[in-house]
């Protein structure tokens, strides 16, 4: 464990808490992409299948359980409790355009052709593009609530911090996982224009609006 990975995990946890707070406090999931949240739940489900079989540490197990529970909790709030506030008209990104190629790629490019490893690879690839429906939704509505932009900033920062973690582990532990690194870089790059807007607007106290 290193400081980059720890702060990355904390940023990830913070993002999930911010989203749950937004939906719970505003009693609305307006501006939040249900498709991205469904894909995140799928990412955690396919990545943490070894939760029972492969104990790494109390921290690892606890965080995995929190991530799985909170992702399904978010789906519950979005599609059951506050379903009436789900903005399906703007959440129109075709998930199959992401899931199908990612599934195909995870069969072609992986470390080991075993069910658990392919599912892990699928979850790594899927996570790298899972935010696209959310970013697409913001581009369609042209704006995002401030707390939703904080959620996205924390979520984007987590994988950027993981990249620093991989640099650290490469030099100090000889650890290198090409699949995770490449997918992590793609994932972080997808946030770049959002990061620019967030830093130039939200940090100046303005609302996050996209140039028309």
């Amino acid at each position: 464990m290193n400081v980059f990975r720890l702060t990355g995990d904390i940023a990830h946890l913070l993002a999930i808490i911010l989203l749950l707070m937004k939906i719970w406090k505003t009693r609305s999931c307006a501006g939040v992409s249900g498709k991205s949240q469904m894909m995140f739940a799928l990412v955690f489900t396919t990545r943490y299948l070894d939760l029972i079989t492969n104990f790494i540490s109390l921290y690892n197990t606890t965080m995995k359980m929190i991530f799985i529970a909170s992702s399904y909790g978010t789906l519950y709030l979005m599609f059951l409790k506050f379903r009436a506030t789900y903005d399906s008209n703007h959440d129109t990104f075709r998930m199959e355009f992401l899931v199908v190629p990612v599934a195909g790629l995870s069969f072609l490019v992986n470390h080991d052709f075993s069910p658990l490893e392919i599912l892990w690879t699928f979850s790594i690839y899927l996570e790298s593009v899972a935010i696209l429906p959310q970013l697409f939704m913001i581009s369609k509505t042209g704006e995002a609530e401030t707390i939703t932009s904080h959620y996205l900033f924390a979520l984007g920062s987590y994988r950027a911090l993981y990249i620093l973690n991989w640099v650290y582990r490469f030099y100090f532990e000889g650890f290198f996982d090409l699949i995770a690194v490449v997918a992590g870089c793609v994932q972080t790059v997808l946030y770049c224009d959002f990061f620019y807007l967030y830093i130039t607007k939200v940090w100046k106290g303005k609302k996050l609006t996209l140039p028309a």
Binding site: R5, R47, D50, M63, H111, W120, R169, G174, F175
Partner: peptide, 10 residues
């Protein structure tokens, strides 16, 4: 290069 026998990252 070791690192992906067991995935120890979240």
């Amino acid at each position: 290069c070791k690192g992906h026998e067991t995935h120890d990252e979240l």
